[in-house]
Amino acid sequence: MSLLEVDGISVTFDGFRAINGLSFVIAEPELRAVIGPNGAGKTTFMDIVTGKTKPDSGKVLWGEDNTNLIGQSESTIARAGIGRKFQKPTVFEDQTVRENLSMALKDRRGPFAVLFGDGGNQARLMEIAEEVGLAAHVARSAGELSHGQKQWLEIGMLLAQEPRLLLVDEPAAGMTPEEREHTTDLLKRLALKHAVVVVEHDMEFVRRLDCRVTVLHEGRVLAEGSLDHVTKNQDVIDVYLGR
């Protein structure tokens, strides 16, 4: 069944149509890769789903009871179960790995709950740290981590949120081949229970994910299907090679 249904959204920035009647459906569980050239609207698409950008028209329906997410705040959407990993690792470098993960742990999010809370389930926190290979670094400040470790920390924070839908923007950037493999495994494993949307440039990485692929171009869906299917699509070839 569909978890997220994006229905005919459009958004214009100063006359530039970044998203043009985009529709998109993802089920739970499902793994989906979104590819597309620069400016295809991948990031804007994520911004709209996570509530950062308000579209001019269209609907974003979520969950069993089809709530419209348009107009809800970023935090409400995040609490509803949509987690996002940014292209550029954005962790709180000023704080320790533990503090970063602790903030992300699924828990009550109100100011008073946070104030009087006990800092969250530490066993779960260490489990996640273990998963992303940072168990030995929990006491370190996130700013001291390498780029790859920051990527892992951010993935760890995403896991800690226990979202139903994971929006993952270029997860493998700056990772070693082994780390990439680990990431692929992790994403595939997650996709057994969750809905996972991966935005990626790296075709090799996408191929390894072995999932349904959606090609965006000029703010709308150009093609959808298996990687082999879409790479044979003439439109896709034109867009990628003919530009």
């Binding site: 996570t50 950062k52 705040s73 409400t76 999010r109 109100g110």
Partner: peptide, 10 residues
């Protein structure tokens, strides 16, 4: 902005 995406009502 990042805190918002973690689900906190900033």
């Amino acid at each position: 902005a990042r805190v918002r995406f973690l689900g906190y009502h900033v």
